[in-house]
Design a protein around this nucleic acid. Structure first.
Lengths: 134, 134
DNA sequence: GGAGCAAATGCAAGTCACTGGCATTTAGGA
DNA sequence: TCCTAAATGCCAGTGACTTGCATTTGCTCC
């Protein structure tokens, strides 16, 4: 996979890929770092993930706390596309996955977007006040 | 307004409220700080805004990057509800407002959400690749 | 119109995610 | 095996934000 991208095969890269491969969900850098051997240099990991992103080996998505989360190719957007909306409570700041509600397949189309934009998936965040804060 | 919330009336608080009152859009702390008298202590402003948030005098919404934006009560979510979707390019990371596309009024209802959640506005972020990165 | 005190402030210092510079090491083609 | 560009590791720096603590200041109660 590294060779395919024209990158050298190095221990850090292999380890990072392995962590992402085993991950059940997209991870941010600190979480990745925690799963890597203790002596691993944080700077290298940041650079490694930037490289992976540039080479499109991983998907980089925004986390709820507005950090970047990384996920390996075949478990990227498709598997984690969050077909369900999220709910952000503007009082307590908590975020919930609304598993039950599904974003209609027709939704993106209904926006009548310019064809120049290639949408991979829609993210819906409902703002409001959660049951606990009302 | 401060007294109503059971807070003391102090110069920093008055100035911060004034800045938010005059703001056309939600601001993050650095931006607020820039509009305050030069000698204003950043720590105090952070604390002030946390206090305002706790007392529900301001709305705190998430910014595009990992930051909080603050807006005063009556120009909070309603006036800045971003009735239009946003587009995030997962290649270059840039965020755009898709002014032309409007989120259907019926959208939130169509999700058939639990009544316990009081939705003030829906935020839609389309992920994909922007025209420039294709 | 004080006096007293909790609340608010200001300053120093610390944390945390992340970046840039630069010397050293190393992968991998010749 | 050699050589070089690529990758790493370490240092230091940035920028947003927090914590601790001593000092100041609104505000209540006399």
């Amino acid at each position: 996979m590294l060779k395919q991208a024209g990158l050298r095969v190095t221990p850090v890269r292999l380890a990072a890929l392995e962590v992402l491969r085993k991950a059940a969900a997209p991870l941010d850098v600190p979480k990745i770092l925690a799963k890597l051997p203790p002596a691993t240099d944080a700077v290298t990991v940041y650079r490694t993930l930037n490289t992976f992103t540039r080479k499109k080996m991983v998907h980089r998505v925004r986390g709820e706390d507005r950090s970047w989360l990384y996920a390996i190719g075949d478990m990227g957007p498709e598997r984690h596309e969050h077909r369900h909306p999220h709910f952000v409570c503007d009082t307590c700041g908590k975020v919930e996955c609304l598993q039950d509600a599904e974003i209609p397949r027709t939704f993106v189309r209904s926006l009548k977007l310019d064809d120049a934009y290639a949408v991979t998936y829609p993210e819906v965040v409902l703002h409001g006040v959660c049951p606990r804060c009302r």
